[in-house]
Design a binder for these strands. Structure first.
Length: 488
RNA sequence: GGCCUCAUCGUCUAAUGGUUAGGACAUAUCCCUUUCACGGAUAAAAUACGGGUUCGAUUCCCGUUGGGGCUACCA
């Protein structure tokens, strides 16, 4: 049974790159009828953010990358326990300690009493000499029994991995193929910090093994620490999971996607009014594609078609234009009712009454004109409050003020004869079209002022659509207002 | 600096020895049209460079260049 996991560190928010990693892990597990688990890697107490976990979970739920049953999550609480849970590293300290002691007893790890100052100095010296940096094995010479005593007595120390100084570590990455490292260049990694917490490198191995993870899917930034991890697996005699290191997401200038150059947090996109389906679809295609020309994908369709053999090796620029396009596609497919529902937070915040009887019609007018939901309130404002405008707006570029003055009152008169029963955009278009023809007017000379009078804007939806949404009374009122403006 | 890694239009990518190198986003033009948006059409736009291997290289090998990652008691 395939088991994958997503293991975020609660340092504040879910990065879009993290979303993609979680998504691929989820897709792969789902596709193979396996399990997708979540683990919280909160071993860095200095960077710990109080509601970091809740934030990340919120983003994951929003994106619908929901965990399977048997996972540690229940709503936004970490309550359930999976195999060898809980999957929160700060709650597993005894487990790491126990495993570190085993390594120590077997001579595969050693206590290190070096001060941070000494380590910094060492690194500086190595850098100055243009030597590879790394621990010099200074504490390797301390007698293990004595070291144990010193550690027990409370002397400040860490536990280091005893890395072989010869040979090679070779492994097969699902995306990159064979990768090999010379052992001599691999550092004696700190396994247990002096505060009693494990480092990432130690915890990840212990936990992945205990959680029976079969496939490790994570970002490329981890690939160079794989040899350390493999050595730990070897010392414990554990089976090594398959690994897939995903290419990074990049800024437009090809550097690693950073906050400096745009939004990187999933919640940023949430707040701007991107639909989760759009973000997921877009992010899934950053580094993967089905090999066909289909590019609109639901989560279920992604599950069906996802395959690591089609995941690329190159970093992908996070291209917001393309994301906007995806968002528009999904926006277009929403019913007016659903659009009101999901846009409610933005509408309410802008003071728009979502219970207004024409709200659905109003959002329908702008649905194909906006890219993100946060643009919606501004876009539909004219429906509820006619903006102030100059009479000049009513004159079509190919027409004249006199012509408008002549036509508009007649149009109002004619529209007044149209019954409320026929007040829909199709009938209005038909009837007004006939009227325009009969009177020998040009279409633009009638429709432009009509639209301008109804919207008060240079750019807007078409006049018949607006008229339908507004209703007969409001339409006549707005046209009469325009006539008033012209006579001044 | 060392180690690892990557390289097709501006961007996301398809094509794993034989294609006029395909699609999408973005851009431009045109059509539709009262404006905007939608929709439709068209255009411009790529195999980083240099060597091999081969009848033939985007594709395989080597090198160069360039990018990225790692090089913490952070993940």
């Amino acid at each position: 049974m395939i088991r994958t996991r997503f293991a975020p560190s609660p340092t504040g928010y879910l990065h879009v790159g993290g979303l993609r990693t979680a998504l691929y892990s989820y897709l792969f597990a789902k596709k193979n009828k396996g399990k997708f688990l979540l683990r919280i890697e909160d071993t860095d107490r200095e960077r710990y953010v109080a509601d970091g976990v809740a934030n990340i979970l919120k983003s994951l739920y929003w994106a619908c990358v929901v965990p399977d049953e048997g996972v540690i999550l229940d709503k936004e609480e970490i309550t359930q326990k999976g195999k060898n849970g809980p999957y929160v590293q700060s709650q597993r300290l005894d487990i790491y300690k126990e495993h570190a002691e085993k390594l120590l007893a077997d001579g595969h790890a050693y206590y290190c009493f070096c001060t941070p100052e000494r380590l910094t100095q060492l690194r500086e010296q190595q850098t100055a000499k243009k030597m590879p940096t790394g621990y010099d094995g200074h504490c390797l010479s301390v007698n293990p029994e004595e070291a144990k005593k010193r550690a027990k007595s409370g002397e400040r120390c860490v536990v280091r991995l005893k890395m072989p100084k010869s040979g090679e570590t070779v492994f097969n990455d699902m995306i990159r193929g064979e990768v090999r490292f010379k052992n001599e260049l691999v550092d004696d990694q700190v396994l247990m910090k002096s505060d009693g917490y494990p480092t990432y490198h130690f915890a990840v191995v212990v936990d992945d093994h205990l959680m029976e993870i079969t496939h490790i899917i994570r970002g490329e930034e981890w690939i160079s620490s794989v040899p350390k991890h493999l050595q730990i697996y070897k010392y414990f005699g554990w089976e090594v999971p398959e690994m897939a290191h995903l290419p990074l997401l990049l800024n437009p200038d090809k550097s690693k996607l950073s906050k400096r150059q745009g939004d990187v947090a999933v919640e940023d996109y949430m707040k701007k009014g991107y639909l989760p389906e759009a973000l997921v679809n877009f992010v899934a295609f950053l580094g993967w594609n089905p090999g066909t020309e289909k590019e609109m994908y639901t989560l279920d369709e992604l599950v069906a078609d996802f395959d690591f053999s089609k995941v690329g090796k190159t970093g992908a620029v996070f291209n917001v234009d393309k994301l906007n396009w995806f968002n528009k596609q999904y926006l277009k497919n929403l019913s007016n009712k659903d659009l009101v529902k999901i846009a409610t937070p933005w509408l309410a915040e802008a003071g728009i009454d979502i219970d207004n009887k024409i709200i659905e019609g109003a959002v329908g007018l702008e649905r194909e004109r906006i890219e993100v939901l946060s643009e919606l309130p501004e876009a539909i404002k004219f429906v509820f409050n006619l903006p102030d405008y100059n009479a000049g707006l009513l004159v079509w570029k190919k027409s004249t003020a006199d012509e408008v003055k002549n036509i508009l009152p007649k149009l109002a008169e004619f529209m007044n004869t149209i019954s409320v029963r026929d007040w829909n955009k199709e009938k209005l278009e038909e009837k007004i079209g006939e009227w325009v023809g009969q009177n020998g007017y040009s279409t633009g000379s009638v429709l432009w002022p009509m639209r301008a009078a109804l919207s008060g804007q240079e750019k807007s939806p078409g006049p018949f659509e607006i008229a339908e949404v507004l209703g007969k009374d409001a339409v006549l009122e707005r046209i009469n207002l325009a006539i008033g403006k012209l006579s001044n």
